[in-house]
């Protein structure tokens, strides 16, 4: 029961009603049910604290919204539960980070 409660406790924050991603508040593991203010999503991969998880389908070229503002455009199809990061999101301004 405690395990179930742990798996169901609030783990992410939707910062704005228009956001299509949530921000993890703890380290999340693949398969975890991620509870946020107004919904639940199953994580498709491990997601560390502070990282973003998609809560909707975002097609290539569509915007990712956080804080109610665009933080860039999708470079790959993003499914609900996907980790959103450098592999599928890029800046609409200038290059931020190069490996």
């Amino acid at each position: 029961m405690a395990v179930l409660q742990e798996r169901m406790s609030k783990k992410a924050l939707r910062l704005h009603p228009e956001d299509n991603c949530v921000v993890s508040l703890i380290d999340i593991h693949k398969g975890d049910l991620v509870v946020y203010e107004d919904g639940t999503i199953m994580a498709n991969s491990d997601v560390d604290i502070g990282h973003k998880i998609s809560i909707s389908t975002i097609k290539i070229g569509e915007k990712v919204y956080k804080y109610g503002a665009s933080i860039g455009s999708a470079t790959a199809l993003i499914e609900p539960g996907d980790h959103i990061h450098t592999q599928n999101l890029t800046s609409d301004y200038i290059v931020g980070f190069r490996h």
Partner: peptide, 17 residues
């Protein structure tokens, strides 16, 4: 290059904006 470090990305930030 914008003001963005490797550590920012490891910490979950993806883009400059």
């Amino acid at each position: 290059l914008g003001s963005f470090s490797n550590g920012n990305a490891v910490g979950g930030l993806t883009t400059l904006e």
